[in-house]
Design a protein around this nucleic acid. Structure first.
Length: 113
DNA sequence: ATTCTCACA
DNA sequence: TGTGAGGA
């Protein structure tokens, strides 16, 4: 399939998809003449990138996560990466809870009025 | 109508 | 982290 269909299937813009290839986030696609040719595996990777973005993961953090062994996607690397994101999110919860605690102390100090 | 590259913010 | 312009 060409990039237009890939964009429709993933909900990503055509520009974004080309950009991801340019920065090495996805493989260099083979061309039919001048046109990039996408296959199912590429759609899966693009959907992963979309998911990651929704989780607040920057593209730079995704660098190196998507590996192709023998032309297949290495999902085990991705699994490890996602677990790391999970831990990161857990840490964020703790950070926010600490901020709330600090805020509560501020309230205590204002209480006299 | 679709995709391409290049320039740019 | 992408978009707009302009051409094939």
């Amino acid at each position: 399939m060409y990039i237009g269909e890939a964009a429709k299937r993933t909900g990503l813009s055509i520009k974004a998809i080309r950009f991801y290839e340019e920065i090495g986030l996805i493989r260099q696609l083979e061309r039919v003449g001048r046109y990039r040719l996408y296959k199912e595996a590429d759609i899966e990777v693009l959907l992963l990138i979309k998911e990651a973005k929704a989780l607040g993961v920057g593209l730079s953090q995704l660098q190196g996560v998507i590996q192709y062994n023998e032309g297949q996607i290495d999902w085990s690397t991705i699994k490890v990466f996602l677990h790391g994101i999970r831990q990161q999110l857990t840490q964020q919860i703790e950070d926010v809870q600490q901020k709330i605690a600090s805020l509560d102390i501020c309230y205590e100090q204002i209480k006299p009025s």
